[in-house]
């Protein structure tokens, strides 16, 4: 039973998990307060707005949390700069542990698509799959789009000195469509891949616990596993499973986030015909 203790491989550092946790919480708050205002004509929207103290408070919270997210994004940006291996730059950006999209990812995406329709074996993924890299850069792009348009709209008196006032009409729709895209992607695709597909069910705890099950790495990411083995990094990367109490917290947080997201998604779709767009 000694293998019960050393069953996991480190995947995310504590700082990375903290970034994800802060992003997760603030994303849900932004989604809820934003949808509350968008759906304020419906009882569903009024209910969400009530949670946050009403229509006006929703906007106040939305703006402050938005600024908090942008600050976090800035900190993350400096974190990225600090984490880059500048000695091997720029070649180091194309390493196997890098989340930059590379030609290899197109090949793997193609092979994965063939696996999806059942005519090929599972591709030899390394540490990050192309869908995970896409998720990461989607947030990056979304942060810029939502942050810029959000700031323009939140400080409209000042921003209309820089851009023409009708630009706010445009910024509003960019903000709205990007928000729908982001929430749709997270609440359907990200949650399903992370939690609900059979091999991860009931939950992929990697982003909370920081580690993944060694067996699933061997099968889902064989190239990563072999690379660790070859470089003698495997021993250093192996860690124990979190205790029962901590795992319970992970499940509670993860499922709370998922149900919040599904509540926003389903309510948003069901009520979409009842609002003035």
């Amino acid at each position: 039973m000694s293998t019960m203790n050393n069953t996991r491989i480190r995947r995310f550092t504590a700082v990375q998990r903290l970034f994800h946790l802060l992003l997760m919480v603030s994303f849900l708050v932004q989604g809820a307060t934003g949808l509350a205002r968008m759906y304020i004509e419906t009882p569903w929207g009024q209910y969400i707005a009530w949670v946050f103290g009403g229509y006006e408070y929703c906007l106040t919270i939305h703006i402050y949390v938005g600024i908090f997210m942008l600050a976090g994004f800035l900190v993350h940006f400096f974190y990225l700069l600090a984490r880059i291996d500048w000695k091997g730059f720029p070649k180091s950006l194309l390493g196997r542990d890098s989340v930059l999209l590379q030609p290899r990812d197109a090949k793997e995406a193609y092979e994965h698509a063939l696996w999806l329709i059942g005519i090929r074996d599972w591709p030899r993924f390394d540490r990050w799959g192309y869908w995970e890299k896409f998720d990461y850069w989607a947030v990056f792009w979304g942060m810029v789009i939502m942050g810029v348009t959000g700031l323009l709209l939140a400080f409209s008196l000042s921003s209309s000195r820089i851009i023409p006032g009708w630009g706010l009409n445009v910024a509003f729709w960019v903000h709205r469509i990007e928000a729908i895209l982001a929430m749709g992607h997270v609440f359907i695709i990200h949650f399903f891949i992370g939690h609900l597909r059979r091999h991860n069910f009931p939950m992929d705890k990697a982003m909370f616990e920081g580690s993944v099950d060694i067996d699933s790495v061997r099968h889902e990411r064989p190239a990563w596993y072999e690379r660790l083995e070859k470089n003698d990094d495997l021993k250093g990367a192996i860690t124990t499973e979190a205790g029962r109490g901590r795992r319970a917290v992970f499940y509670a947080v993860g499922y709370l986030a998922m149900f919040t997201g599904l509540f926003l998604l389903i309510g948003g779709i069901l009520n979409s015909a009842a609002i003035t767009w």
């Binding site: 698509a113 696996w115 999806l116 329709i117 059942g118 869908w131 989607a138 729709w173 960019v174 469509i177 990007e178 729908i180 895209l181 749709g184 992607h185 359907i188 695709i189 399903f192 891949i193 609900l196 597909r197 059979r198 091999h199």
Partner: peptide, 25 residues
């Protein structure tokens, strides 16, 4: 333009997710 980006993303990733779910089942 924004709608095309959003619809394009969903057109790729919704079937992708759906197929993945079926395949793993």
């Amino acid at each position: 333009a924004m709608a095309a980006i959003a619809v394009g993303t969903f057109l790729v990733f919704l079937p992708h997710t759906f197929l993945w779910g079926i395949r793993e089942l």
